[in-house]
């Protein structure tokens, strides 16, 4: 069965791009969220196999959202989406329990390689 993905990013452009990447890799994007608050709610509702999480978002940051999601579900797999220059934020997210990260600008094959590796499929 295809793995279920929740995509969290405040930019529609990024969400669409990430969705396309996942679709091309045979994943099933089951939900989207545009900020940290929504992300936590959607996670509770959908229980996806994987969540991609932007870091800088309104209302609630990706790091905070990651922390809350992991509190709900310690087995949650959250992958941070970051830009170059956000290294310290990513490390903070890793300390909060993020499973891995991908660096913008994304290349489809890199994203899929990371995701598959993290999910133990590679």
């Amino acid at each position: 069965m295809a793995k279920r993905v929740l995509v969290v990013d405040d930019a529609i452009f990024m969400r669409n791009m990430i969705k396309d990447i996942f679709a091309s890799g045979g994943f099933d994007v089951v939900g989207e969220a545009a900020n940290g608050l929504e992300a936590v709610e959607k996670y509770r509702e959908l229980r996806p196999d994987l969540t991609t999480m932007d870091i800088v978002m309104p209302f609630k940051s990706g790091i905070e959202a990651t922390r809350e999601i992991l509190k709900q579900d310690a087995s949650a797999v959250v992958i941070m989406c970051s830009a170059l220059g956000q290294e310290s934020l990513v490390m903070e997210a890793i300390e909060a329990g993020a499973a891995d990260f991908i660096v913008k600008p994304f290349r489809a094959e890199d994203v899929l390689a990371v995701v598959k590796k993290v999910l133990g499929e590679a």
């Binding site: 170059l84 990513v90 490390m91 890793i94 300390e95 660096v103």
Partner: peptide
């Protein structure tokens, strides 16, 4: 790897 520091930090963690 574009951010070797973060990568290594993840492994360390």
């Amino acid at each position: 790897c574009q951010v070797p520091g973060v990568r290594a930090f993840l492994v360390h963690r």
